[in-house]
Design a protein around this nucleic acid. Sequence first.
DNA 1: CAAAATTCTTTAGTCAATAAAAAATTTGAG
DNA 2: CTCAAATTTTTTATTGACTAAAGAATTTTG
Lengths: 211, 211
Amino acid sequence: MTEQQPTSLRERQKEDRKARIIAAAKSLFLEAGLEKITMEAIAEIAGVSSVTVHNYYGTKSGVLLALVAESDRELLATLERGLRGRTATLAELVLGFFEIVCRHTQTHLDKAIWRQVIAASVSGTEPRFGKLYHELDNRLASVLIREVERMVGAGLLPETVDPAHLGWALFNLQNARFIEFIAADGSSCEAGLQHLRNDLSALMPGGFPGR
Amino acid sequence: MTEQQPTSLRERQKEDRKARIIAAAKSLFLEAGLEKITMEAIAEIAGVSSVTVHNYYGTKSGVLLALVAESDRELLATLERGLRGRTATLAELVLGFFEIVCRHTQTHLDKAIWRQVIAASVSGTEPRFGKLYHELDNRLASVLIREVERMVGAGLLPETVDPAHLGWALFNLQNARFIEFIAADGSSCEAGLQHLRNDLSALMPGGFPGR
DNA sequence: CAAAATTCTTTAGTCAATAAAAAATTTGAG
DNA sequence: CTCAAATTTTTTATTGACTAAAGAATTTTG
């Protein structure tokens, strides 16, 4: 996970420009909102041409994905801190997961950016984009999977559960409510949590599968 | 649900133009693919100006949503025929639902169109768009809810289950796999079904909640 | 240092989307 | 039936994302 420094001058310059671009994008988006900011403006502040921005990130949404990916490591760390070995039930796990993700999106970027990113990940105009986003999803789902494994190991869940399948199912449930959360500026994290609670208790009235 | 004819000439002309536009869009998209077709081309065949197309449908995705909405009634009818009172277990119900939806999208429109529609429904640039799409989702989820109600009534599920909550949870699970299905041109309906089976058996090993 | 390879910028163009003025047509009153 | 008012479409013009290709600049390599 540590960055190996590219020896070549060209590589270093490229990294520099990329960093300048996402730095410019981040500050501009935060101060003026997504659709007020043109690619041209980002390019100008980053000191490159707008075509270069396109060459690096493909589309405006591509720039946004880079912002999301940047905050991804921190989100994963927060999830580790908040969840690792700390939950005794599936509901606790999934609700905790959802709450951390929601709060993180509120703090770091904003809903408009997430909407664009998710929309672009679905629309599939950019091949590399979909791939990158899917990797983020994989990392997030893996957190749930690992915790389910732990709970099985600790005897909190029956040996018969398949951690990967259960983890993905829970991730998808949670993700549907996350999308609902970001889809409307008005909807609160609490409302999402309540919906998710309803989902879980409808599917697993006993608190965990098979019982 | 029956169309009441608008008496005014203006209204009739408007309906006419709208119908010409979606007819033009449908045939053009099918024969040349989504991104080859410009709004200009649609407008020309429909015999209106491109600005009029925008005035009616807002965006290109708005035109697509109209196509989706058009096929929606047929999809609902197919769901009714295929599911109503025909399933004895939740897995049968959800898997059947998923399969019908997948096959319908393959037959009627294509994945590229669905990708655009779902992306637009999330991105939320168009307020009316999100609302319309959400209504389609509601109608689809209601099918599941009704069937769950029936199964509770028939003693196939415990009295304790909340049909609305369970219906929505199942719909969200199924929808996640549907989005996965349309996200990649390569992914098959069968693969989606298998994933969904895994989800269901992970969450409800006994075949239904609470057991 | 000079040729070769790479990468950026310039230039030019397409298309979606929006705004505002202008043109056409339906409607409604007399 | 006719003329003014209301509505709607088209025309016109502009912005901005995105792409392609040619040209300019710079790093690399021999």
